[in-house]
Design a binder for these strands. Structure first.
Length: 295
DNA sequence: AAGATGCACAACCGCATTGTG
DNA sequence: ACACAATGCGGTTGTGCATCT
Protein backbone atom coordinates (compact mmCIF):
# COMPACT_ATOMS: atom_id res chain seq x y z
CA UNK A 1 0.00 0.00 0.00
CA UNK A 2 2.51 2.55 1.13
CA UNK A 3 0.16 5.36 1.69
CA UNK A 4 2.05 8.59 1.73
CA UNK A 5 1.95 10.40 5.02
CA UNK A 6 0.06 13.63 4.91
CA UNK A 7 3.13 15.59 5.89
CA UNK A 8 6.12 14.07 4.24
CA UNK A 9 8.31 17.03 5.05
CA UNK A 10 10.08 16.52 8.30
CA UNK A 11 10.26 19.37 10.74
CA UNK A 12 6.68 20.41 10.19
CA UNK A 13 5.18 21.90 13.28
CA UNK A 14 2.43 20.07 15.10
CA UNK A 15 0.25 20.85 18.04
CA UNK A 16 -1.55 24.03 19.00
CA UNK A 17 -1.42 26.98 16.67
CA UNK A 18 0.11 30.21 17.80
CA UNK A 19 -1.34 33.66 17.15
CA UNK A 20 1.39 34.46 14.62
CA UNK A 21 0.59 31.35 12.65
CA UNK A 22 -3.09 32.21 12.72
CA UNK A 23 -2.29 35.66 11.45
CA UNK A 24 -0.16 34.35 8.61
CA UNK A 25 -2.85 31.91 7.59
CA UNK A 26 -5.64 34.48 7.75
CA UNK A 27 -3.65 37.05 5.83
CA UNK A 28 -2.68 34.56 3.19
CA UNK A 29 -6.19 33.25 2.66
CA UNK A 30 -7.70 36.71 2.66
CA UNK A 31 -5.22 37.69 0.01
CA UNK A 32 -5.05 34.63 -2.18
CA UNK A 33 -7.77 32.28 -1.06
CA UNK A 34 -6.71 28.88 0.16
CA UNK A 35 -6.25 27.43 -3.31
CA UNK A 36 -4.51 24.13 -2.95
CA UNK A 37 -4.21 23.30 0.71
CA UNK A 38 -1.22 21.18 0.00
CA UNK A 39 0.77 24.00 -1.46
CA UNK A 40 -0.55 26.64 0.90
CA UNK A 41 2.00 26.11 3.67
CA UNK A 42 4.88 26.47 1.26
CA UNK A 43 3.44 29.56 -0.33
CA UNK A 44 2.48 31.21 2.91
CA UNK A 45 5.63 30.26 4.76
CA UNK A 46 3.93 28.21 7.41
CA UNK A 47 5.69 25.16 8.80
CA UNK A 48 2.50 23.16 8.85
CA UNK A 49 1.03 20.54 6.61
CA UNK A 50 -1.82 21.53 4.37
CA UNK A 51 -4.21 19.38 6.24
CA UNK A 52 -3.44 21.14 9.46
CA UNK A 53 -3.94 24.51 7.77
CA UNK A 54 -7.27 23.46 6.37
CA UNK A 55 -8.44 22.19 9.72
CA UNK A 56 -7.34 25.30 11.50
CA UNK A 57 -9.12 27.47 8.99
CA UNK A 58 -12.37 25.52 8.78
CA UNK A 59 -12.68 24.83 12.48
CA UNK A 60 -11.38 28.01 13.99
CA UNK A 61 -10.31 30.90 11.79
CA UNK A 62 -13.09 31.09 9.26
CA UNK A 63 -14.84 34.44 9.69
CA UNK A 64 -18.32 32.98 9.74
CA UNK A 65 -17.68 30.70 12.68
CA UNK A 66 -20.12 31.25 15.47
CA UNK A 67 -18.29 30.91 18.73
CA UNK A 68 -19.68 30.53 22.20
CA UNK A 69 -21.84 27.96 23.86
CA UNK A 70 -24.58 26.13 22.02
CA UNK A 71 -28.09 27.33 22.68
CA UNK A 72 -30.69 24.92 23.89
CA UNK A 73 -32.37 25.02 20.51
CA UNK A 74 -29.13 24.17 18.80
CA UNK A 75 -28.60 21.26 21.14
CA UNK A 76 -32.06 19.94 20.48
CA UNK A 77 -31.54 20.29 16.78
CA UNK A 78 -28.29 18.39 17.00
CA UNK A 79 -29.98 15.58 18.89
CA UNK A 80 -32.77 15.35 16.39
CA UNK A 81 -30.50 15.52 13.40
CA UNK A 82 -28.29 12.90 14.94
CA UNK A 83 -31.30 10.64 15.26
CA UNK A 84 -31.75 10.91 11.51
CA UNK A 85 -28.26 11.24 10.19
CA UNK A 86 -26.19 9.42 12.75
CA UNK A 87 -22.59 10.47 13.15
CA UNK A 88 -22.55 12.45 9.94
CA UNK A 89 -21.25 15.52 11.65
CA UNK A 90 -20.66 17.49 8.51
CA UNK A 91 -24.25 16.98 7.43
CA UNK A 92 -25.49 17.99 10.85
CA UNK A 93 -23.21 21.01 10.87
CA UNK A 94 -24.62 22.14 7.56
CA UNK A 95 -27.94 22.69 9.33
CA UNK A 96 -26.37 24.83 12.02
CA UNK A 97 -24.91 27.93 10.42
CA UNK A 98 -21.64 28.95 11.95
CA UNK A 99 -21.06 25.67 13.70
CA UNK A 100 -18.40 23.25 12.58
CA UNK A 101 -18.59 19.51 12.40
CA UNK A 102 -15.78 19.28 14.92
CA UNK A 103 -17.60 21.50 17.34
CA UNK A 104 -20.78 19.49 17.03
CA UNK A 105 -18.88 16.26 17.37
CA UNK A 106 -17.31 17.53 20.56
CA UNK A 107 -20.65 18.74 21.84
CA UNK A 108 -22.12 15.35 21.21
CA UNK A 109 -19.32 13.40 22.79
CA UNK A 110 -18.93 15.59 25.84
CA UNK A 111 -22.46 16.73 26.59
CA UNK A 112 -25.33 15.36 24.61
CA UNK A 113 -24.39 11.71 24.71
CA UNK A 114 -24.10 11.82 28.45
CA UNK A 115 -27.30 13.75 28.76
CA UNK A 116 -29.19 11.17 26.77
CA UNK A 117 -27.67 8.41 28.82
CA UNK A 118 -28.77 10.18 31.95
CA UNK A 119 -32.25 10.38 30.51
CA UNK A 120 -32.22 6.66 29.87
CA UNK A 121 -31.98 7.08 26.14
CA UNK A 122 -29.60 5.14 24.01
CA UNK A 123 -27.47 7.70 22.13
CA UNK A 124 -27.00 5.24 19.30
CA UNK A 125 -30.62 4.47 18.60
CA UNK A 126 -32.22 7.47 20.29
CA UNK A 127 -34.67 5.19 21.94
CA UNK A 128 -35.27 4.56 25.61
CA UNK A 129 -33.31 1.74 27.10
CA UNK A 130 -35.16 -1.38 27.86
CA UNK A 131 -34.62 -2.89 31.26
CA UNK A 132 -31.77 -4.87 29.85
CA UNK A 133 -29.84 -1.76 28.92
CA UNK A 134 -28.54 -0.47 25.65
CA UNK A 135 -26.86 -3.55 24.36
CA UNK A 136 -29.79 -5.87 24.71
CA UNK A 137 -32.00 -3.85 22.42
CA UNK A 138 -32.78 -5.49 19.15
CA UNK A 139 -31.35 -3.43 16.33
CA UNK A 140 -34.42 -3.76 14.19
CA UNK A 141 -36.86 -1.86 16.31
CA UNK A 142 -39.84 -0.31 14.54
CA UNK A 143 -38.26 3.12 14.60
CA UNK A 144 -35.00 1.78 13.25
CA UNK A 145 -36.83 -0.03 10.51
CA UNK A 146 -38.60 3.16 9.62
CA UNK A 147 -35.32 4.98 9.44
CA UNK A 148 -34.23 2.38 6.96
CA UNK A 149 -37.46 2.84 5.08
CA UNK A 150 -36.94 6.55 5.05
CA UNK A 151 -33.50 6.02 3.68
CA UNK A 152 -34.92 3.82 0.96
CA UNK A 153 -37.52 6.42 0.15
CA UNK A 154 -34.85 9.06 0.10
CA UNK A 155 -32.70 7.10 -2.29
CA UNK A 156 -35.61 6.40 -4.53
CA UNK A 157 -36.71 10.01 -4.65
CA UNK A 158 -33.13 11.10 -5.02
CA UNK A 159 -32.64 8.94 -8.07
CA UNK A 160 -35.82 10.26 -9.54
CA UNK A 161 -34.97 13.87 -8.82
CA UNK A 162 -31.56 13.42 -10.27
CA UNK A 163 -33.23 12.38 -13.43
CA UNK A 164 -35.60 15.32 -13.30
CA UNK A 165 -32.83 17.72 -12.54
CA UNK A 166 -31.52 17.19 -16.01
CA UNK A 167 -34.58 19.02 -17.21
CA UNK A 168 -35.20 21.51 -14.46
CA UNK A 169 -31.81 22.57 -13.35
CA UNK A 170 -29.64 24.72 -15.45
CA UNK A 171 -26.82 24.30 -16.20
CA UNK A 172 -27.44 20.59 -16.37
CA UNK A 173 -24.78 19.56 -14.00
CA UNK A 174 -25.05 16.15 -12.51
CA UNK A 175 -26.69 16.05 -9.16
CA UNK A 176 -24.58 14.43 -6.55
CA UNK A 177 -25.87 12.76 -3.46
CA UNK A 178 -26.06 15.29 -0.72
CA UNK A 179 -25.95 14.71 3.00
CA UNK A 180 -28.65 17.32 3.39
CA UNK A 181 -30.85 15.72 0.85
CA UNK A 182 -32.88 13.90 3.43
CA UNK A 183 -33.77 17.11 5.17
CA UNK A 184 -34.49 18.90 1.98
CA UNK A 185 -36.61 16.03 0.91
CA UNK A 186 -38.77 16.64 3.91
CA UNK A 187 -39.06 20.29 3.03
CA UNK A 188 -39.75 19.45 -0.55
CA UNK A 189 -42.85 18.43 -2.37
CA UNK A 190 -42.58 14.88 -1.20
CA UNK A 191 -42.58 16.05 2.36
CA UNK A 192 -45.27 18.53 1.54
CA UNK A 193 -47.45 15.78 0.16
CA UNK A 194 -46.87 13.85 3.28
CA UNK A 195 -47.71 16.76 5.48
CA UNK A 196 -50.88 17.46 3.58
CA UNK A 197 -52.13 13.93 3.48
CA UNK A 198 -51.03 13.07 6.91
CA UNK A 199 -52.25 16.38 8.17
CA UNK A 200 -55.74 15.69 6.99
CA UNK A 201 -55.80 12.54 8.94
CA UNK A 202 -54.05 13.82 11.97
CA UNK A 203 -54.84 17.54 11.83
CA UNK A 204 -51.18 17.96 12.31
CA UNK A 205 -48.28 18.51 10.03
CA UNK A 206 -45.28 17.37 11.86
CA UNK A 207 -42.36 15.75 10.20
CA UNK A 208 -41.10 12.43 11.32
CA UNK A 209 -38.43 14.48 12.96
CA UNK A 210 -40.69 16.92 14.66
CA UNK A 211 -43.21 14.31 15.50
CA UNK A 212 -40.72 13.54 18.14
CA UNK A 213 -41.81 16.65 19.87
CA UNK A 214 -45.44 16.90 20.74
CA UNK A 215 -45.37 20.67 20.73
CA UNK A 216 -43.85 21.37 17.39
CA UNK A 217 -45.23 23.23 14.44
CA UNK A 218 -44.99 22.69 10.74
CA UNK A 219 -41.49 22.74 9.41
CA UNK A 220 -39.97 23.15 12.76
CA UNK A 221 -38.08 20.89 15.00
CA UNK A 222 -38.96 21.51 18.58
CA UNK A 223 -39.47 25.09 17.71
CA UNK A 224 -36.31 25.20 15.65
CA UNK A 225 -36.99 25.50 11.98
CA UNK A 226 -34.79 23.38 9.82
CA UNK A 227 -34.18 26.03 7.30
CA UNK A 228 -32.99 24.85 3.96
CA UNK A 229 -32.70 28.40 2.80
CA UNK A 230 -28.99 28.87 3.20
CA UNK A 231 -28.36 25.69 1.33
CA UNK A 232 -30.69 26.45 -1.49
CA UNK A 233 -29.36 29.95 -1.65
CA UNK A 234 -25.88 28.62 -1.79
CA UNK A 235 -24.85 30.77 1.11
CA UNK A 236 -23.49 27.94 3.12
CA UNK A 237 -19.84 28.12 3.85
CA UNK A 238 -17.52 26.29 1.54
CA UNK A 239 -17.63 22.69 2.48
CA UNK A 240 -16.71 19.58 0.69
CA UNK A 241 -17.60 19.17 -2.89
CA UNK A 242 -20.17 16.74 -1.64
CA UNK A 243 -22.06 19.31 0.37
CA UNK A 244 -21.83 22.25 -1.91
CA UNK A 245 -23.41 22.21 -5.30
CA UNK A 246 -26.84 22.43 -3.74
CA UNK A 247 -29.92 21.35 -5.55
CA UNK A 248 -32.16 24.30 -6.10
CA UNK A 249 -35.26 23.12 -4.42
CA UNK A 250 -37.01 26.39 -3.96
CA UNK A 251 -38.11 27.44 -7.40
CA UNK A 252 -37.07 24.73 -9.74
CA UNK A 253 -38.18 21.87 -7.62
CA UNK A 254 -41.46 23.44 -6.63
CA UNK A 255 -42.21 24.16 -10.22
CA UNK A 256 -42.18 20.50 -10.89
CA UNK A 257 -44.81 19.79 -8.32
CA UNK A 258 -46.83 17.67 -10.66
CA UNK A 259 -43.98 15.33 -11.11
CA UNK A 260 -43.21 15.45 -7.47
CA UNK A 261 -46.71 14.90 -6.32
CA UNK A 262 -46.92 11.55 -7.99
CA UNK A 263 -43.32 10.92 -7.19
CA UNK A 264 -42.71 7.47 -6.07
CA UNK A 265 -45.83 6.05 -4.55
CA UNK A 266 -43.60 3.80 -2.61
CA UNK A 267 -41.68 6.65 -1.17
CA UNK A 268 -44.81 8.48 -0.21
CA UNK A 269 -46.28 5.38 1.29
CA UNK A 270 -43.22 5.01 3.39
CA UNK A 271 -43.48 8.57 4.50
CA UNK A 272 -47.08 8.04 5.42
CA UNK A 273 -46.14 4.88 7.16
CA UNK A 274 -43.93 6.59 9.67
CA UNK A 275 -45.19 5.80 13.13
CA UNK A 276 -46.94 8.58 14.92
CA UNK A 277 -45.85 7.51 18.32
CA UNK A 278 -42.25 6.86 17.72
CA UNK A 279 -39.80 6.58 20.50
CA UNK A 280 -38.34 10.03 20.29
CA UNK A 281 -40.72 11.76 22.64
CA UNK A 282 -37.88 12.01 25.08
CA UNK A 283 -36.82 15.09 23.23
CA UNK A 284 -39.57 16.93 25.00
CA UNK A 285 -37.56 16.42 28.11
CA UNK A 286 -34.39 17.93 26.80
CA UNK A 287 -35.32 21.24 28.36
CA UNK A 288 -35.55 19.51 31.67
CA UNK A 289 -32.02 18.34 31.28
CA UNK A 290 -30.48 21.54 30.05
CA UNK A 291 -28.57 21.24 33.25
CA UNK A 292 -27.48 17.66 33.26
CA UNK A 293 -28.45 15.70 36.29
CA UNK A 294 -25.93 13.95 38.38
CA UNK A 295 -25.98 10.37 37.29
C1' DA B 1 -0.93 24.64 48.65
C1' DA B 2 -0.14 20.76 45.84
C1' DG B 3 -1.27 16.80 43.43
C1' DA B 4 -5.02 14.06 41.28
C1' DT B 5 -8.84 13.85 38.46
C1' DG B 6 -12.20 15.18 35.10
C1' DC B 7 -13.76 17.97 31.41
C1' DA B 8 -13.80 20.62 27.15
C1' DC B 9 -11.90 21.58 23.07
C1' DA B 10 -8.36 21.82 19.49
C1' DA B 11 -5.74 19.11 16.64
C1' DC B 12 -4.11 14.85 14.57
C1' DC B 13 -4.57 10.38 12.09
C1' DG B 14 -6.07 7.43 8.75
C1' DC B 15 -9.69 5.89 5.73
C1' DA B 16 -13.07 7.22 2.15
C1' DT B 17 -14.29 9.84 -1.55
C1' DT B 18 -13.62 12.81 -5.37
C1' DG B 19 -10.97 14.95 -9.03
C1' DT B 20 -7.71 14.72 -12.69
C1' DG B 21 -4.54 13.21 -16.14
C1' DA C 1 -10.75 2.28 -17.04
C1' DC C 2 -7.14 3.08 -14.21
C1' DA C 3 -3.81 5.18 -11.03
C1' DC C 4 -2.56 8.69 -8.28
C1' DA C 5 -3.15 13.07 -5.83
C1' DA C 6 -5.99 16.06 -3.19
C1' DT C 7 -9.42 16.77 -0.08
C1' DG C 8 -13.15 15.67 3.24
C1' DC C 9 -14.81 13.28 7.10
C1' DG C 10 -15.18 10.88 11.44
C1' DG C 11 -12.74 8.71 15.25
C1' DT C 12 -9.36 9.44 18.51
C1' DT C 13 -5.84 11.66 21.14
C1' DG C 14 -3.42 15.43 23.47
C1' DT C 15 -3.38 19.54 26.10
C1' DG C 16 -4.78 23.08 29.11
C1' DC C 17 -7.87 24.50 32.52
C1' DA C 18 -11.06 23.87 36.42
C1' DT C 19 -12.45 21.40 40.25
C1' DC C 20 -11.82 18.18 43.86
C1' DT C 21 -9.34 15.85 47.62
Amino acid sequence: MGRRPCCERKGLKKGPWGPEEDEILINYINKHGHGSWRSLPKLSGLSRCGKSCRLRWTNYLRPDIKRGPFTLDEEKLVIQLHAILGNRWAAIASQLPGRTDNEIKNLWNTHLKKRLLCMGVDPLTHEPFTSGGPTTRPRSSPATRHMAQWESARLEAEARLSKESLFFISPPTSVKPDPDFFLRLWNSEVGESFRKLNGEAKADCRSPISQASSSTKCGSVSGVTIDVGPIAAGSSTPKSSRTEDPIMFDASFSSSSNESEDSSDTALQLLLDFPINNDMSFLDDVDTYATPPQC
